[in-house]
Simulated assay, not measured.
Amino acid sequence: MTDDPARDDPFVTHRSLLFTVAYEMLGSAADAEDVLQESWLRWADVDHTQVRDPRAYLVRVVTRQALNRLRTLSRSREEYVGEWLPEPLLTSPDVAEDVELAESVSIAMLTVLETLGPTERAVFVLREVFELPYGEIAAATGKSAATVRQVARRAREHVAARRPRVRVSRSEQQAVVGRFLLALRTGQLDLLMEVLAPDVVMIADGGGQVLAALVPINGADSVAELLARANQVVSGFDTTPVWLNGAPAGRIEFDGEPSAVSLEVEDGRITRIYVVRNPQKLTRLDAPSQLAR
């Protein structure tokens, strides 16, 4: 049996890490894969014997490519039909074991990161999630170390003001998700109202491809009414509990079309519902994505 040289290639060894970096910077698995392909081509042209720290070097290459992609994507996202949400990933329950990683790839956090500029987002991800030294981040972003420190501070403050306030246990999240899916599947409006916080917000992403609310729906009464009306139209939802982006979530079939649903939970009730219906963003729900720090 001959050895596979690709098995020892640092790019292959660190691929899950590199994908996670690109995905957290872009919020899109498809764009992250494109970035990895571009980075691989650049890595293939390098004399690997001259690279002292392949992991740091590859993270730097991926960061630069992701920054380039972010800047080109900004206009298309401004022209997006309706609300733009990150592309959900099917993950194994093991991802939740790394609490910091699971929080950083959650739909809630990725939505917050969308409010940062490209450089701020890159600095925040590399520093807060992957704990890279400021010098390495400076090399990756083309900024001075002093500038990176300032950007990191601003980004931290920005994210802290917008991230979910309460971190719930896995068991509480699973219980609330289960009650929510049961309410949808059985059409029990009273159970649905019990599990929704009074000020719940539902955000849907159809991308102009399928029917979805174009603006956020605010308040338990409005959200419950919309879900109950949709339930009546299709004579019930087909719901499946899944793990999305490191957290318990749901896959819902609506009139034969799949949707990915992620929830924010606080004090046993749902405070925010993210519904991704754009079919172009639902291609990663059949096999778990490999994420790593």
Rank of each mutant, 00 (worst) to 15 (best):
T119K: 04
P279C: 06
G219Y: 03
R179V: 07
V129I: 08
D267W: 00
A247E: 15
E264M: 12
P216M: 05
D34L: 07
D286C: 00
S235F: 03
Q174I: 02
G206L: 11
E225M: 10
M1F: 13
I252L: 11
A102K: 06
V265R: 02
W43C: 09
W84N: 04
L26Q: 03
Y134P: 08
R163T: 09
H48Y: 10
G142D: 03
V168P: 07
R75T: 15
W43Y: 06
L73K: 13
V265L: 04
L110W: 04
F237Q: 00
R251E: 11
L132V: 00
Q50F: 10
G27H: 02
R121M: 02
D221S: 14
D47C: 10
L70A: 13
L58I: 11
M193C: 11
V276L: 07
A6I: 12
G178K: 02
E114G: 07
T91R: 05
W40H: 11
L113N: 12
A155W: 05
F237L: 00
M1I: 05
G207E: 12
V166K: 08
T186N: 08
L26R: 02
G142L: 07
T283A: 06
A247D: 09
Y23T: 07
A287E: 14
A212G: 09
V112E: 04
L263C: 08
E79Y: 07
D238Q: 05
L67H: 12
F254V: 09
L196I: 01
G142P: 02
P88N: 05
P198R: 07
D238N: 01
R60K: 13
L196K: 01
E100A: 07
P164I: 00
E136M: 10
L67V: 04
R153Y: 04
L182C: 03
V176W: 06
Q50I: 10
A44C: 02
A224Q: 05
T72G: 12
F130H: 15
D255E: 09
S262P: 09
S222M: 05
T141W: 10
A138Y: 00
V223W: 06
G142Y: 12
A146M: 13
G187D: 02
E131M: 08
T186D: 14
Y57N: 08
A213Y: 04
A32G: 09
V99I: 10
V168H: 09
Q280E: 07
A161W: 10
E253P: 00
E120D: 12
S235V: 05
D53N: 15
